[in-house]
Computed example of a mutant assay.
Amino acid sequence: MTRDFPAGNYSYIPAVFQYSSGVKAHPDFEIERVRFDQPVPLADGFSMIADYIEAADRPLTSFCACELRSPAAVDEAGFRAFNERYVTTLADWGIFDGVGTNNPVARSNVCPEIDPPLEPSFYAFCFTRPMLGARPSFVIAGGAESRGGPGSYPERIVRYRDLSPAAWQDKVRFTVGEMESRLGAFGHGWKDTTATQVYTVHDFHAVAADELVRHGAARSGLTWHYARPPVVDLEFEMDTRRVSREFVI
């Protein structure tokens, strides 16, 4: 099930208050992805993003996705505290109502194992812009091996604290399935993607052929970031997208 966010000219897959599970541009609009050459601390990043979007003659509500980098994985309480700070700017921009339970902006947030930033920072962001006859474009948010629904992370993590070969296959298989479910919500599949990113500090190659390549997740290759998911005890995260216009600033 998807919802429209008319102010941003995109639809989204509802998830939780801190992010959505994915976004797709409306017809005659496309998503542009902009990556920072170096991660930019959160406050400065929001300011630079606002300047970039406004220079493109677009409203701040067109902000639809972002990729974050954090110093280290945190526990559930720390993760919630960060998210409550993060969404205040989205509320100021008219994207998040401040009291709702879902948020239209898709997101990934991972922690580089080597040379991490000193504070939470922006790695990349996306926004919508008009383009007559544009081909479909979408961004699927980062997802790890954690089941949805009630319960703590230890209760929901697939094969919690188990890194055996069989458990690792289950973790990757679950995450790939979650990506496929989100793609399907927009009427798409792996064949429609232009990029896929993987985040882990573990060697996942033993299951890559069967669980990733054979499913089509590597149709445009795989970008592996040596980073951890943002919550302690999560081990594997992915995101994927179809975006034709990408820049580095």
Rank of each mutant, 00 (worst) to 15 (best):
186 F>P: 10
4 D>K: 12
75 D>E: 14
133 G>W: 02
103 N>D: 01
221 G>L: 07
122 F>A: 08
156 R>L: 04
204 F>H: 07
117 P>T: 12
200 T>M: 03
142 G>D: 07
240 T>W: 10
51 D>F: 00
16 V>W: 03
132 L>K: 15
60 L>P: 05
248 V>E: 02
82 F>P: 01
67 E>L: 02
204 F>P: 01
50 A>I: 11
36 F>D: 15
92 D>S: 15
67 E>Q: 12
42 L>T: 09
98 G>H: 11
165 P>I: 11
56 A>H: 14
235 E>V: 00
234 L>F: 06
160 Y>T: 01
73 A>T: 04
143 G>C: 11
188 H>T: 04
115 D>T: 15
173 R>N: 03
48 M>I: 10
23 V>E: 03
108 S>M: 04
11 S>G: 12
89 T>G: 13
145 E>N: 07
226 Y>L: 13
200 T>I: 09
50 A>V: 11
147 R>A: 14
105 V>P: 02
31 I>D: 08
10 Y>H: 15
136 P>N: 11
28 D>V: 08
209 A>C: 00
111 C>V: 06
244 S>Y: 04
119 E>L: 14
191 K>P: 00
224 W>E: 05
5 F>D: 03
85 R>E: 01
132 L>G: 10
158 V>S: 06
48 M>T: 13
42 L>V: 10
90 L>G: 13
225 H>V: 00
26 H>E: 11
204 F>C: 02
225 H>D: 03
29 F>G: 06
95 I>T: 12
138 F>Y: 03
194 T>C: 07
133 G>K: 06
104 P>Q: 14
7 A>S: 13
157 I>L: 11
130 P>K: 03
98 G>C: 05
175 T>D: 03
33 R>G: 04
75 D>C: 10
41 P>R: 04
238 M>Y: 12
115 D>Y: 13
234 L>K: 02
64 C>R: 08
7 A>Q: 14
197 Q>N: 10
94 G>A: 00
91 A>C: 06
95 I>S: 11
38 Q>I: 04
35 R>D: 07
222 L>A: 09
202 H>Y: 10
211 E>K: 09
88 T>H: 11
38 Q>R: 05
125 F>T: 12
92 D>M: 13
138 F>V: 05
152 S>H: 03
222 L>C: 13
189 G>I: 02
147 R>C: 12
113 E>F: 09
248 V>N: 01
34 V>R: 14
202 H>M: 06
128 T>L: 13
58 R>A: 07
55 A>F: 07
8 G>C: 06
184 G>T: 02
179 M>Q: 06
145 E>T: 01
51 D>H: 11
189 G>W: 00
207 V>P: 14
31 I>C: 09
